[in-house]
Design a protein around this nucleic acid. Sequence first.
DNA 1: TTACCGGAGGGACAAATGTCCTTTGTTATG
DNA 2: CATAACAAAGGACATTTGTCCCTCCGGTAA
Lengths: 192, 192
Amino acid sequence: MVRINKDLLAFVSRLYETESFNHFFLENYSPKQSLIKQGKKVFSVFIIKSGIAKCYLSEDNGKDFIQEFFSDGEIFGEIETINEHLSFCSIEAITDLQVFEIKGDKFHKLLRSNSKFNELILKAFANKVKYKAIRHGYNQSHTIEDKLLRLMNEFPELLQHISKQDIANYLGVTARSLNRTLSDMGKKFDLM
Amino acid sequence: MVRINKDLLAFVSRLYETESFNHFFLENYSPKQSLIKQGKKVFSVFIIKSGIAKCYLSEDNGKDFIQEFFSDGEIFGEIETINEHLSFCSIEAITDLQVFEIKGDKFHKLLRSNSKFNELILKAFANKVKYKAIRHGYNQSHTIEDKLLRLMNEFPELLQHISKQDIANYLGVTARSLNRTLSDMGKKFDLM
DNA sequence: TTACCGGAGGGACAAATGTCCTTTGTTATG
DNA sequence: CATAACAAAGGACATTTGTCCCTCCGGTAA
């Protein structure tokens, strides 16, 4: 699925326009550029202004698993900043990307001093936990076809932007299996 | 895995002892009792004082998927309270359970008025997102045997407390597959 | 005691998915 | 232009996992 967070984006955009608060920087990234690397320190918190990025985890056996696709308003780097750990995943631009960035210490200050921001972050976290729970449950107990139908239903234009391999990595299957399922589904539709 | 949160438990225990703050209640539950039901309203936030509970999600196809086992200091009901949604999972006692409970509105107040508590909740969230991400990635890209070895490694006494079916539901496989893997592993060890 | 139930274990087969490898078409680059 | 690099597609086969059963056992209610 492609995660967004309109409330947070609106809030951060407003803050970015505010003369007196100048800790957000607007940066640009090109496709395939890396914003956060798994196992490395994280120095900033990021909020997407526009574009699509992938959030993925590289396993010890060499496979990549895509946690989510991120788009407008989605925040990342906040987890590592809050619990002061190294990054547990990688973030990479898929399309051209505009991103608001704020340094870790400024993020902490904002979190403590601005109750509206604090609330937005709490809600963002609550949503992250919830959708991760639902997605994991769904993934474990449904076939590739079910997962694919759901994905195409919720985000029909996905295949335009994203490679087959990324879709496979998002579903947690091989590209071969994804292809097989797609062609089986094609046959089904031909019969209708 | 069995999730715990010592810092949060220490904080809540101290607050519970405090005369001037009397919004935490200590409740007891017996095995198989339900604390939160999927799809229902959530009125309180819960923090475990002792015992083990399971957090699971019932899928549309009748299968249950266990998100986590919860123990000392783990919090739940906070997500639904913060984003004011119905519960997306169920919580059920496995062993005898002692639980601190606080009503939703009091939880909100505490979150706004007590910065230490606010920070503990933020960290709890950060950890939840992180371990969910890692677990989902691991689950998708490893065999049953790998998952089982990891589980027995991190929590060897688990099989004493928890039924085979629950283990299978936690790993996202059928009881039959779990059994097969267990007996295959037994054969392996016999050769060594 | 007897009958019954639910959990654990596992046989036989079916279905889903992965692995390995080949082909084709497109792009990009010297 | 030639050729390398790469994504997409799929054939053939192996492995993993699920489905559908049946049996065995220990508790327990009548």
